[in-house]
Design a protein around this nucleic acid. Structure first.
Lengths: 192, 192
DNA sequence: TTGATTGTCTAGCGATGCTAGGATCGAATC
DNA sequence: GATTCGATCCTAGCATCGCTAGACAATCAA
């Protein structure tokens, strides 16, 4: 069985290589540049090899998205745990979220802009996505205020952050004044 | 000169036809289905004709976006003028905005998700885009609160609406509870 | 050693956005 | 009224896209 195990390991390793290469290429030149041919060339295999790991380009995007969701959850929790008051926690979370989106635009796109074939907001949602939302909920649930459902509050706050992130990156909002916009959101939405 | 004038008229008419057809096709089957071949077939001209009106597909998207911006400004102003108090105005504006996004998803995409080659947030921004933002500013500036710049407040409120609109439509947020989310945003962000 | 299975590659399909070059048509000139 | 000439439009084609069929080679079991 050792031979099979080795092959399985190598296969898993190659799959990681595909995802990492796709992500790297997307961050460098955008998702449009991530073609199956270019990707195959970079991993030094032929195109059809990609299709023995993933159903298609969409699934590769989905894999990058899941990887990114896990990292985002870590980043958000780290920021939250470094703050003392609930309000400070929310402010730190918001900055961490926007920072993640700005530093990993391709990953953020894979998560929330592109079609990665992932299920959202239902029971089929992959664990990393649920957990990323949970990471937001942990800090945001504290400041929902009386009579407001924590999940609903988290969704709304998240949507606001998402709007800021996407409009800024798409050039729809001037890139200055990010901090005062965040401050405004936190000051008004969070109830200590 | 009458002949030239007629030709010019016909040309302008055909350009309108292209934009209207692209929009219609996009709303029916999504922007992916708007290929230059299909578009050409629908307007009953050959493909290269499109390129005598627009530099490429991107500019066609941009044209649809400008048309949509004008309509959105009208919708937002109409909703705002039907309300009496500043807070009610903002609530009506928010609902009108989300309603427009939900009813015209392809147009909304052309405006804020896709690359239509338009300039945003600078002096080269086309007039319809500036005016759509102005329509938001007219009502939202009233409730920015003391010491908060109306433009900055409008940008932030708009981003929140944009986040709700896109996440909902992309299936990232459950489609129920739209109204309580809007209420939460208006109640917390707007200061009467 | 043979036969079968697994893995990989070459080649190709139907699309895509976009463009070059030739055909056609109508207006203006003689 | 015939002829030039420029504008207008179409056919055909390019490079590239995601994806797949079928041939080939390497590896394993018998």
């Amino acid at each position: 069985m050792s031979v099979q195990e080795r092959k399985q390991r190598e296969r898993a390793e190659r799959e990681r290589l595909i995802v990492a290469t796709a992500r790297e290429l997307a961050e460098q030149q955008g998702w449009d540049a991530v073609t199956t041919r270019r990707l195959a060339e970079r991993i030094e295999y032929s195109q059809p090899v990609l299709y023995s790991h993933f159903r298609g380009k969409r699934e590769i995007i989905g894999a990058v998205a899941l990887e990114g969701a896990a990292e985002m959850a870590v980043a958000v929790r780290a920021a939250a745990s470094s703050a003392n008051s609930p309000r400070e926690r929310v402010a730190a979370l918001a900055r961490a979220y926007l920072d993640f989106a700005a530093r990993n635009p391709a990953v953020y796109d894979a998560l929330f802009q592109l079609d990665g074939g992932l299920a959202f907001a239902n029971e089929d949602t992959p664990e990393p996505l649920k957990d990323a939302f949970a990471a937001l909920l942990e800090s945001l649930g504290e400041v929902a205020g009386d009579g407001v459902h924590p999940g609903l509050f988290t969704e709304t706050f998240w949507a606001s952050l998402h709007g800021l992130a996407t409009l800024t990156r798409a050039g729809r909002l001037p890139p200055e004044y990010i901090e005062p916009r965040v401050k405004l959101l936190v000051d008004r939405l969070a109830i200590v």
